[in-house]
Design a protein around this nucleic acid. Structure first.
Lengths: 337, 337
DNA sequence: CTGTTAGCGCCTTCAT
DNA sequence: ATGAAGGCGCTAACAG
């Protein structure tokens, strides 16, 4: 591969002049600029970013750490992030954490070693605080997506959990439901805490009682929905819920599956609503009522915040962007006559 | 950030010794090794990969270029690639080409500049040959996924297109169909050519006539399925097909949508089958009959081939891996009585 | 406007 | 087993 020295020699200038041409410095006369640019083309020279990074201490590399790129919520985030990154001159490194703190921790050390300029991360939960502090220690800016972490101050892009829960539950109430179960994520994740809090508030606002036996926490990866459904169905018909709110698409889908295993018809026997839209392409075959999150915007806005932080064009105080969910009413929650 | 010099000074050894410890060289005595490792820990030293890359001319970075991470076929590829890359000590850079040769070309120049060790690519078509030759010129190994490119010799991971078409069409014939349309991709993509060829062969093998009016090519991004469906439906009932084969999930989904717009019931009025499974999570709500491709394996096997090529543990002759599709029979193709 | 010098953090090579 | 010198390709800082 040709270097600036090769170009310099062939064009009869100093390497520094070549560097200036590459970086569009104004301190080069038009004739030399043209001469150098021709030589660059004739030698098919492509600048070596690694060398550049070493000097400048910037790699133009960003990292995106998500749970699983296979999940529609996260791959839409990834798409938004990549589009924005490209547009602003950065490249995106992909990492799947699978909700594992250890995997996340290993990745973060790797990323520091790689020299990424910043990290977009959907943290695994409050346990991620330690990992994020590692980033801070090494001066790597980061933006949290979708989830906050206790004790960590930084730029954030979140969904309005209260609004989402409110829309979902109000819809269920309109459909005549009064006993509504919540199948939540683990409470070390901020979303889960907020969604439960909102659930309690919205029920109370609607003068509905809160039955602790109808509130569950499962894991977002190793799912225990099946057992939860079994125990729900074993309740007496007086206590048994007529509707279920699942707090993400993974849990929502597993809820439906578990109900079917028990030969329960959704929505006739029991209604189901959830967060996120699990049907990326198959919108021709809608079924689940969801509070859809603007995942693409999570990615693109988060990336913008991050790059502004990296390039120090951001205000000092951290920014918190709260996006609105959209209620998409579909078959799984509709009263059948 | 601490450097090997900081460690060296504090541990009273030379930087070279520190380097040896980091790289697990045997040429270090046990006492010094321990001393150095303690200092590394006490200073929270993390090696600078950029500097390492500059010397060694290897970045441990791989690039994955796909059409769109939002498509289930591609995000499963990405998952397979990332898992394998991580396991083998590499990181993955994500790029969406949107089937655009220009975007692909720009990415490739960027990647060369970034110094990736290799590229996993699902090319946009035969026009990608020029871009791939650029990679070769700069000694960057690559592996093609899902599609071949005319005039390019390299490692490949493909699906058995003939088998897929055969399974789909034989299934349709079993369901009693004889007039089967093909909505294909553009023929500058190897897959499309092969799928059309297989379509012709399988029909002929089954002694069915080939009607050129039933063979269409659309684009995998800007879709023209809607017009195609309109023209299909305007055919006389004698010529009108009773079944449609769509050659990827995008086209398949758009076919269904277009048919619904015309108030056609699938499968009662017309059957539809396609490549790829468009329903990643929503398998609780299956509808489309598909020839499902082992996308995860595309990614992981491709990555393995690539890394073996990079590390020169691969045989000199290129390898071609052909994976088997699986026929998943669902509602969209079943005869209704 | 152009060039020279020095150094980013690490590793190869050669000495000891 | 350990160290010293030199260089990977580039750019900041300074000199002219």
């Amino acid at each position: 591969m040709a270097t600036i020295y090769d170009i310099a020699k062939k064009a009869n200038v100093s390497p520094m002049t070549v560097s200036r041409v590459i970086n569009h410095s104004k301190l080069v006369s038009e004739p030399t600029r043209r001469k150098v640019q021709q030589t660059i083309k004739s030698l098919n020279y492509i600048p070596n970013k690694t060398a550049r990074s070493l000097v400048l201490k910037e790699s133009k590399l960003l990292s995106l750490i998500i749970t699983d790129i296979t999940n529609p919520f996260f791959n839409n985030i990834a798409r938004g992030a990549e589009d924005k990154a490209l547009q602003m001159g950065y490249q995106l490194l992909l990492s799947n954490s699978d909700e594992s703190i250890e995997k996340e921790s290993n990745y973060i050390k790797l990323l520091i070693s790689t020299g990424v300029d910043g990290v977009l991360i959907c943290p695994t939960g409050d346990g991620s605080g330690k990992n994020l502090k590692t980033l801070t220690k090494y001066n790597v800016p980061f933006v949290l997506l979708d989830r906050e972490v206790k004790g960590i101050e930084c730029d954030l892009v979140l969904v309005d959990n209260h609004e989402a829960i409110r829309k979902l539950i109000n819809h269920l109430i309109e459909q005549g439901h009064e006993k509504i179960a919540l199948i939540n994520g683990p409470t070390h994740i901020s979303n889960a805490r907020e969604r439960e809090k909102a659930y309690r508030e919205v029920l109370t606002l609607n003068s509905l009682p809160i039955d602790e036996a109808l509130i569950f926490a499962t894991h977002y990866i190793q799912d225990s929905t099946s057992e939860i459904i079994s125990s729900l169905l074993s309740l007496s018909s007086k206590k048994r819920p007529t509707a279920i709110v699942a707090t993400n698409n993974f849990v929502g889908v597993n809820t439906i599956k578990a109900l079917r295993k028990h030969r329960m018809n959704v929505p006739r026997d029991i209604a189901v609503v959830c967060f996120d839209d699990p049907e990326p392409i198959s919108d021709f075959n809608p079924f689940l009522t969801v509070a859809s999150q603007p995942a693409y915007s999570f990615g693109s806005m988060g990336t913008q915040l991050l790059i502004e932080r990296i390039e120090e064009t951001a205000p000092k105080q951290y920014r918190k962007i709260v996006l609105s969910p959209e209620l998409l009413i579909r078959e799984s929650s509709l009263k059948k006559d």
